[in-house]
Structure formats: structure tokens, C-alpha cells
């Protein structure tokens, strides 16, 4: 599964994208975040305040309870600021 990070989430995590194999018990986006936070300080810092974290599963906006089973791409980013 490919994980993508954008804007300050990318800066704090220290990585823009990576291919990972998620543990079998990971079912939804919140599980992915919990798992990521065990992988180092950068991820802990990036996901310290979940009120400013948004996500997309397979390039569609998702929520923390969106299933990631069968997904190929999950992205994490702050609230968008285009326009």
C-alpha cells in the first residue's frame, strides 16, 4: 500500500511517500494513524493533533473510520487551502 503525505504533514513526518505493508489488524484510517505513530517521532509529531489532519483513500476524501481494506493509496494532509 502506498502512503502519501502533503504540506506540513509531509514536513513533520519527514517523508513524502512510502510503500508499506500494513499489519493485518489495520482496518480503517484511524488504525493506520495509530500504527504510523509507533514508527517514530516524525510521525508522532505529524499526527499529534488529529483535528487538523485530513485524509484521502484511493484519491477520494475519507474520514478516520473509512475502511482501508483493499485500498492502494492513502494520503494524509492538512485542511486544503487552494483557490
Amino acid at each position: 500500500m502506498r502512503l502519501l503525505y502533503f504540506a506540513w504533514v509531509k514536513q513533520k513526518a519527514g517523508i513524502s511517500q512510502e510503500d508499506v505493508t500494513l499489519p493485518g489488524e489495520v482496518r480503517d484510517v484511524s488504525d493506520v494513524i495509530s500504527w504510523l505513530k509507533t514508527r517514530g517521532e516524525g510521525y508522532e509529531a505529524a499526527f499529534a493533533d488529529l483535528s487538523v489532519i485530513r485524509c484521502a483513500v484511493d484519491q477520494e476524501h475519507g474520514d478516520f473510520d473509512t475502511s482501508v481494506q483493499g485500498a492502494t493509496e492513502i494520503a494524509f494532509f492538512p485542511p486544503v487551502t487552494g483557490g
Partner: peptide
């Protein structure tokens, strides 16, 4: 414009 500003994945 309203929807682009809250949905389209751009960051300034």
C-alpha cells in the same frame, strides 16, 4: 470557488 477552496487538494 466555494467547493474548490474546501475540497480540492492544494496547499499554500
Amino acid at each position: 470557488m466555494d467547493y474548490l477552496k474546501t475540497r480540492a487538494p492544494f496547499w499554500k
